[in-house]
Design a protein around this nucleic acid. Structure first.
Lengths: 193, 193
DNA sequence: TCACGTTGTAAGCGCATGCTTACAACTTCG
DNA sequence: CGAAGTTGTAAGCATGCGCTTACAACGTGA
């Protein structure tokens, strides 16, 4: 760094949040180091600790930010389709909150609490998509599927699911999801508008 | 260790494989340390490296052993139900190969290859459960769901899915899975026999 | 202008990880 | 019986991790 960075704490914080969001989503919590995050953000790693206090607190901030945005933006019955397209469409900056959150296979109770809170928001939203008595269980199962799709795609990078046309995946998944949450809908395509 | 262990390399290897199987399934690859494995196996960690060469090679051995057992044992149409019950029923020593395999969110190409091979065996088995042209895609989606269920259960440890009665989960999941793989069946209960 | 608070940096701490080394004790075979 | 190979062990290496410390430079307000 021959040129010292201009001082702008808000920009530094934003850069760290963006970098962390992307890296946590790509690699999961454990395999994302604070050095990686700082490097991608273009800041010194000490700033991460100054502004967020710890790696874990940064994680919580990322999850909270990502999830809040999506839940505010999506009509409920489109939520599943948005989450799926968010992970299937490479360019899309769709909903990554769920995979970011659950991709960290942390077992500690603090992380669990963090996940739990936002998770509850998603579960509440999904539970409202069915009139069945075991709505919460169904919501969890649907959430689990979305998470699983993300993980299987990344691990088995060269098979049909990784390279799948998102419409093909949606065509398989949504009818199945509807056996659980009957109000789920796909996003209207442009030609429908 | 006041009493030196009796020399038995086969028993030591077996103990390491069992310990690793359990810990990888519980914690995932990254959060399982070689010291943890050795401790649970009741051996010195140097033996792990002597007998398996590396943590990664041990992982490969565990995955290969677990998966092979299950695929040999299960009639195809019961495979999904067995995998689900394997993770839902706490006492069961059911099929953990898939979650062990995919729970490690490793991105390196060696791990990917390892996963890929056994994964292909599962995919082949699952693909044969439908006559649809995109059978492989469907198989991957089902596998993804199983993985996702395991992960969501462990992360969100106190909600309906974690404490769920396995019959309730199966009752929700199997009909949905059948929209993808029509030949899937549940395990006959004892009273049916 | 100057003092103080804020922001950015490089270096390093303490600890944990996968793995290695050196040694002792045992077991087997000629 | 003794040599060689095998098995088990404790200790430690090299590296990387989250996090801290100390300093410099800047920006703001009195």
């Amino acid at each position: 760094m021959t040129e010292p960075r201009k001082r702008d704490s808000a920009a530094s914080k934003e850069a760290l949040l963006d970098a962390a969001r992307d890296l946590f989503a790509e690699r999961g919590y454990d395999r994302t180091t604070v050095r990686d995050i700082a490097r991608r953000a273009g800041v010194n790693q000490a700033l991460l600790f100054r502004y967020f206090g710890s790696k874990e607190a940064l994680f919580a901030a990322v999850v909270a930010r990502s999830g809040r945005d999506q839940l505010a933006r999506a009509p409920r019955e489109l939520l599943v389709a948005r989450m799926l397209r968010g992970l299937l469409d490479k360019d899309s900056h769709g909903d990554r909150a769920v995979q970011i959150m659950l991709r960290s296979s942390g077992e500690d109770s603090v992380a669990k609490e963090i996940h739990g809170q936002l998770g509850q928001d998603y579960i509440r939203a999904l539970s409202a998509l069915t009139g069945e008595p075991n709505a919460e269980l169904r919501a969890h199962l649907v959430l689990a599927w979305i998470v699983g799709i993300d993980i299987v795609r990344s691990v088995a990078g060269s098979d049909p699911l990784a390279g799948a046309d998102s419409d093909d995946v949606i065509a398989c998944v949504l009818p199945a999801v509807r056996t659980l949450l009957e109000q789920v809908r796909d996003i209207p395509s442009e030609t429908d508008a």
